[in-house]
Write a protein that binds this DNA or RNA. Structure first.
Length: 508
DNA sequence: TGGGCTTTCCT
DNA sequence: GGAAAGCCC
């Protein structure tokens, strides 16, 4: 009979503090494997790219540094999850697996169902813990706010790390070394993945670095100075980069929890200078969980509109849509703020909320392109990509819910309201750097002489607008508001409201 | 966490 | 005649 062990499976929860599965494992006096699995299925998934894998390996390195101070280490496996558990089961008797519930893409959901069956067949208990105030299998929102507040009130789940007996399996495939000194166990057929992960060593200064330590540094810096004008500057694409918390990737990849963040925010509650920040920021942390809960309750949102009637929405045909999508993805639409936003998010993985909403509105409303033609591309650009926020938000901004108000962002008005001096636009669209403030957002108005004067030839250095914005706005408004009046849209809207909203709350 | 147009209310 | 509120798409 082989030795009995338990496994703490780290999914998207790359931290040691406030970690319920780890805390539970530390209460049991048993040998424990701390397992992180990098799966080819996800490496090949177009929602993710090198920026995410770099963030994850940085986070694992951080975990391992903390663990090695206690004489422990993480077991990092590259390979599919079923194979990883099967390999460990050859060496040990797995008594139980402890992990969080994951609100993820369909491929991880299907994997979990396969694993559940495999665990059942092998007499392995799988203890899954609710994550961040989100409840699995919820059919309505009657008690959701109460559950959320209960989650916040309960003490953090800090594990007793010194009580944990961490062990590492002997051999899982060929051990290789990731350049950051973390040992990697890689199962068959993953050598190409190892080499591409090793190629990640090149520093990418423009992306936020991953890790639990970095998450706390970011939070503390936000509350020490950066965040004092949070509420006023949140909408500005340039100022938001400093005065927003920038915690989103750390929350998405589980370096820190909403509860830890809000507990830390308490220290500012009595400071009147920070009153607006505390109020605005804490409501957004809750809003975040609210969206993840939507996706948990309706995961079909990854592939179809939550309001099924929108399957028949009159989007542009494929031939018409393709060049528009390409221009949008490349930041070559001829609308300077739109192009600046796309280029900024590709280069840095970050964009403030309002500008993200504007990009979705422009694609789906002004260009009249099906939201599904842009949703994966944009998700991949976000370092903080979180399926549970991305899909419900994308659908809401694309107005395919039939319940929220229609948000048709005028890129020129947004530019005047939030980038009047063109600071952000000039940074990311340097072709227009010399154009003066009053023309930077409408370069198509430049005369031939002005184009020579400001060093930009329209149609060569910077594109002419791919659509007539006034006509497109008018058409989008008519299309959207008239579609909403259809009986099938209204019927679906009633179903959605009863499932996803808190009774009595105002509809926005 | 929209926007454009109209109405209303104030100076 | 301008700002805020209201209305409708």
């Amino acid at each position: 009979m082989s030795k009995s062990i338990q496994i703490v499976w780290f999914k998207r929860d790359l931290r040691l503090r406030d970690h319920a599965p780890l805390a539970e494992a530390s209460c049991r006096n048993e040998p424990t494997v701390l397992l992180y699995i990098i799966e080819p299925m996800l490496i090949n998934d177009p929602h993710f790219d090198i920026r995410h894998w770099r963030f994850i390996t940085q986070s694992i390195t951080d975990l391992n540094e903390q663990l090695s101070a206690k004489g422990a280490c993480i077991t990092l496996v590259i390979g599919n999850a079923e194979q990883a558990f099967a390999s460990i089961a050859k060496q040990f008797t797995i008594a139980r697996v402890l992990s969080y519930e994951e609100v993820g893409l369909d491929n991880t959901y299907q994997r979990d169902k396969r694993l559940k069956a495999w665990f059942n067949g092998h007499g392995i208990d799988w203890l899954e813990f609710a994550n961040g105030g989100v409840t699995r299998g919820l059919n309505n929102r009657r008690n959701w706010k109460q559950q959320w507040h209960d989650y916040l009130r309960r003490p953090v789940d800090d594990p007793a790390l010194e009580a944990l007996q961490v062990i590492e399996p002997e051999s899982l495939g060929t051990p290789l070394s990731l350049s950051n000194a973390v040992k990697v166990h890689h199962l068959d057929d993953t050598t190409d993945i190892i080499s591409s992960l090793n190629a990640l060593t090149a520093p990418a200064q423009t992306f936020q670095p991953g890790g639990e330590k970095r998450a706390w540094y970011t939070l503390n810096h936000f509350l020490a100075e950066r965040g004092i004008r949070y509420a006023q500057q949140i909408s500005s694409p340039s100022l938001a980069r400093k005065s927003c918390s920038r915690l989103s990737p750390y929350l998405a990849w589980g370096n820190i929890t909403p509860r830890q963040v809000l507990n830390r925010l308490n220290s500012k509650k009595s400071d009147s200078d920070w009153r607006r920040t505390v109020k605005a920021f804490s409501s957004r942390i809750q809003w975040r969980s609210h969206f993840i809960q939507k996706f948990e309750s309706e995961c079909s949102m990854e592939i179809s509109p939550v309001n099924k009637a929108y399957e028949n929405y009159p989007y542009a045909g494929a031939l018409d849509a393709e060049p528009k999508v390409t221009a949008w993805q490349r930041g070559e639409t001829g609308f300077p703020l739109i192009d600046a936003c796309i280029r900024a998010v590709i280069a840095t993985g970050y964009l403030n909320f309002r500008m993200r909403a504007m990009l979705v509105s422009f694609l789906t409303h002004h260009l009249n392109v099906d939201w599904r033609k842009g949703v994966v591309f944009l998700g991949r650009q976000f370092l903080d990509f979180e399926p549970g926020i991305h899909y419900p938000q994308f659908q809401m901004q694309a107005s395919v819910t039939g319940t929220n108000t229609i948000r048709l962002y005028n890129p020129l008005k947004q530019a005047l309201d939030h980038d009047k001096d063109g600071r952000f636009t000039r940074k990311w669209v340097p072709e227009l750097a010399e154009v003066p403030d009053d023309l930077i957002h409408s370069p198509w108005k430049l005369s031939a002489m002005e184009q020579r004067l400001y060093g930009v030839e329209l149609g060569r250095d910077y594109p002419l607008p791919i659509i007539d914005i006034e006509q497109a706005s008018r058409e989008a408004r008519d299309r959207l508001w008239s579609f909403r009046e259809r009986d099938d849209v209204k019927r679906e809207a009633r179903r959605i409201l009863s499932k996803h909203t808190i009774p009595g709350s105002p509809r926005t």
